[in-house]
Design a protein around this nucleic acid. Structure first.
Lengths: 240, 240
DNA sequence: TATTTACTCCCCAGAAATAGCGAGGGCGAA
DNA sequence: TTCGCCCTCGCTATTTCTGGGGAGTAAATA
């Protein structure tokens, strides 16, 4: 596809073929060699705290991070969560005492002083980070990130794709499809209309509307309207 | 196609510099010329249906699409909403009558029969599509998408970045974060509990629970509980 | 043709949610 | 220390939703 063998392309191709966790780890190590940086980490951030990832961080640091629930105070996670574009760690908010302590401690564990993290988002609010980490001065790091930003974004995308493949419970179970009217009803309810408003908007009686809501609720296996709307959104059958 | 003066790189660079809507439109037109396809469209899918985008679709089709609220039934939107990786239109679910009618009508308006759409997600549940559209046979289209997939993913990313820059008000970063109790309450409501069950689960009185729900509703700008839960889910504040 | 599916309409009674007031203690940041 | 936010609990009245029935038309499917 591309002229001479670009090592990043090669890693991406290998990653696409990977069907084991080892394959992912191999890809990360290969990338680290290619970019010649201290660490590369893919980190799935689950709001429940059940995070996991692959990468080259020292194991004891990863354990400590999870044990201390640093997720909650890590400016990298917080900052990436509210951004779309990759971000240099220097540009994050390290003003809080806890953040600076975290940073100091991470260096003790062998984490580089420079970092560049890419936020990635999937369906159902899935969120992950792809981070490149190194020890060098600011100028050198800026050159590195400027040069490799686009490739890193792509790499992050492919890592997340693999992670989603390996996480079957994250794929929404598809139930009976909703009828157009049912979809309309749930969608309007989801944007805050009450029954009277929805019925008026759809030009049907409130009684009819109720039938739709109930059948939608039944199809979605929901206990009430709120539940039905919640399920419809997280299964992606309506877009709000 | 991939040498030093890569036209896609040039377009991306121009896009990064763009500070007007015209710049974005120019970038889209340039990309269409480069890829030699019928249409390229960036489409921000917004909650209240106040969608917008840039692209080369005929204006009358865009108007009709919005007027008819085709967003609700478009398999491209629904399909991308449940996926992470780009998707060929052929692989979507066109089984519903409304979907097939939409497809037939779009062709009348000059939309190509082949399409490839990339879902993009930003902070606060922001969601957009980047679509390439053409008229050709399946083999040719498959070759095209296989060849350009990675570049298209990157392009989609940069378009979304620009869109986010231009629409700071669309990403409600002044939306107050929910307190832990508020999150708990909404989460339990989203999985189908009623107020009594939620109150019991959280070991608080139903009156207290009500305060949480109301304050969460206020913070999320929601009209009722269902709306609040819907917003919380689509903004990624809670995960169900 | 027969059957299923979607869409539309109706009644009633009980359960649940909402709107509007109120109060006090705790904890962390400015 | 004050200010703001979070957590907790209380009352009353009104509106809205839910659950249990039944029934007819049109269109697609088998």
């Amino acid at each position: 596809m591309k002229d001479n063998l670009n090592p990043v392309e090669a890693v991406l191709a290998a990653l696409e073929q990977a069907d084991t966790l080892e394959g992912i780890q191999d890809a990360i190590v290969a990338l680290r060699s290619h970019f010649q940086v201290d660490n590369i980490v893919y980190h799935w951030v689950d709001s429940a705290g059940a995070q996991y990832g692959y990468g080259t961080y020292p194991l004891d640091w990863a354990e400590r991070y999870q044990q201390q629930n640093y997720l909650r105070i890590d400016p990298v996670v917080i900052g990436c969560y509210q951004r779309f574009h990759p971000v240099d760690w220097k540009k994050l908010d390290w003003s809080s005492k806890a953040a600076r302590a975290l940073q100091a401690e991470s260096v003790e564990y062998g984490i580089g002083n420079q970092g560049y993290s890419i936020p990635i988002r999937g369906p159902n609010g899935q969120f992950a980070l792809f981070t490149v980490n190194h020890t060098c001065d600011d100028d050198e790091w800026e050159t590195f990130t400027e040069t490799n930003r686009r490739e890193l974004i792509l790499i992050a995308h492919y890592f997340n794709q693999k992670a989603l493949e390996f996480e079957p419970n994250k794929t929404p179970e598809h139930s009976q499809p909703l009828s157009p009217r049912e979809t309309d009803a749930l969608t309007l309810l989801a944007i805050g209309y009450n029954r009277a408003q929805v019925a008026e908007t759809l030009s049907i009686s409130e009684h009819t509307l109720r039938v739709y809501i109930e059948s939608a609720r039944f199809k979605l296996g929901a206990a009430n309207t709120t539940h039905a709307v919640a399920r419809a959104i997280s299964r992606g059958v309506i877009v709000v």
